[in-house]
């Protein structure tokens, strides 16, 4: 591992504010994530975790400040094959049925040329991703006919299939049973060992807990704790009792 100062940054967030419907949902968030780090983003419902994640992947515009991925500002970032994203939930399923296999294969689009069929290696990658989430036997089933946890596993497979360097996960294991969470955590561990960076929102880290290098706690759109994982809960608590305004544990 390289030292913190020289290591390349996967995600850089500088003085980020995000405006949703006229409200500042994020205020002055600053954050640097090195390549290979595994970061948990914690906080209560509505604290701005999804907003941060969605701004980092370029789905929401920054009202102020800037987000960089691998050194490039997000509006100009083009190497999306380096990023895997699991949204908090499947946004509005379509009006036509789609199978598990079809949904997972759309995770490969960033590296797929126009008018080109799937290559054999890509088909194999789809099979492997389906194995990881234990959905290979349901590959031909319509996604809309799966349970919530099974759908979530499909979304995880869709993000893993391109083997990205940076995984950005918004509550990936919400509603996923413990055995599948364990398999997912093992898959993430193998990727982290190869140098994958992980940013993950979760209320219940479960088997992922042991992998976390660092946690960030959001409260009302500000970072109130940024540091080693296990102190996070208590520190954040002490911190906000002081008013939550001072820079305190901000990096």
């Amino acid at each position: 591992m390289t030292s913190p100062d020289t290591a390349a940054k996967a995600v850089q967030v500088a003085d980020l504010s995000v405006d949703l419907g006229g409200r500042l949902v994020l205020r002055g968030v600053g954050l640097q994530i090195r390549q290979g780090e595994v970061v948990a983003v914690l906080g209560t419902n509505g604290s701005g975790k999804s907003t941060l994640i969605r701004t980092v992947v370029g789905l929401l515009p920054a009202a102020r400040g800037e987000v960089r991925l691998f050194g490039t500002p997000v509006p100009r970032f083009r190497q999306w094959h380096r990023v895997g994203y699991v949204p908090q939930r499947l946004t509005a399923a379509g009006g036509v049925p789609a199978t598990v296999h079809e949904v997972v294969s759309s995770g490969l689009l960033s590296e797929r040329r126009l008018f080109a069929p799937l290559r054999a290696s890509q088909k194999q990658a789809i099979d492997e991703a389906l194995e990881i989430v234990d959905m290979a036997h349901r590959r031909k089933d319509a996604v809309a006919e799966l349970s919530g946890g099974q759908q979530q596993r499909v979304l995880i497979a869709r993000a893993l299939v391109s083997d990205p360097e940076l995984l950005i996960l918004d509550e990936p294991t919400a509603g996923v049973d413990l055995a599948s969470q364990q398999i997912f955590a093992d898959a993430i561990r193998a990727r982290v060992a190869r140098g994958t960076t992980v940013v993950m929102v979760s209320h219940d880290l479960g088997p992922m807990d042991a992998l976390i290098d660092r946690s960030i706690v959001l409260r009302r759109g500000r970072i109130v704790y940024d540091g080693p994982p296990h102190a996070s809960q208590t520190h954040a608590h002490v911190h906000h009792s002081h008013g939550g305004e001072e820079p305190g544990w901000l990096s």
């Binding site: 969605r54 992947v57 370029g58 789905l59 083009r78 190497q79 999306w80 094959h81 990023v83 994203y85 949204p87 499947l90 946004t91 509005a92 399923a93 379509g94 036509v96 789609a98 079809e102 949904v103 759309s106 995770g107 689009l109 960033s110 869709r158």
Partner: peptide, 15 residues
């Protein structure tokens, strides 16, 4: 298909 299925995800794959 990807754009119609999940527009936000399609955007994050760079489409």
């Amino acid at each position: 298909f990807a754009v119609c299925q999940d527009e936000e995800f399609a955007r994050v794959t760079g489409l």
